[in-house]
């Protein structure tokens, strides 16, 4: 049996936590209400929201990738131990 350097249940919990964090980041979009007298502010808020969306999407991608790598490692360990 190969040396096991990972606690599979704990790693799975971490993987789920990473995915959940990505989902939380991208869950809801704030809305900029276009006002009749606040055009410049509306434009800036839209830029802010667009940046927030980009951050959330990037986070979800990166954390999803990390979770997938971790899941794969756990699957490898379980396969080797079996």
């Amino acid at each position: 049996m190969a040396a096991v350097d990972i606690d599979a249940p704990a790693a799975r919990r971490v993987s789920r936590a990473l995915r959940r964090a990505g989902d939380v980041a991208s869950s809801a979009t704030p809305t900029a209400y276009a006002g009749a007298t606040i055009g410049p502010v509306t434009a800036t808020i839209e830029a802010l929201i667009a940046r927030e969306r980009a951050v959330a999407t990037d986070l979800q991608d990166v954390l999803g990738t990390a979770a997938a790598s971790l899941d794969e490692r756990v699957a490898q360990v379980l396969a080797v131990d079996r």
Binding site: D5, I6, D7, A10, A11, R13, V14, A17, L18, R20, A21, V24, A25, S27, A28, E52, V55, A56, L59, L63, L70, R73
Partner: peptide, 23 residues
């Protein structure tokens, strides 16, 4: 608030990962 929660979760997850996997 959502992003604050994510930052907290990420900190916890990286600590948990360090504890769960050593390589």
């Amino acid at each position: 608030e959502r992003h604050h929660q994510v930052a907290t979760d990420l900190g916890r997850a990286s600590s948990d990962l360090a504890a769960a996997w050593t390589s």
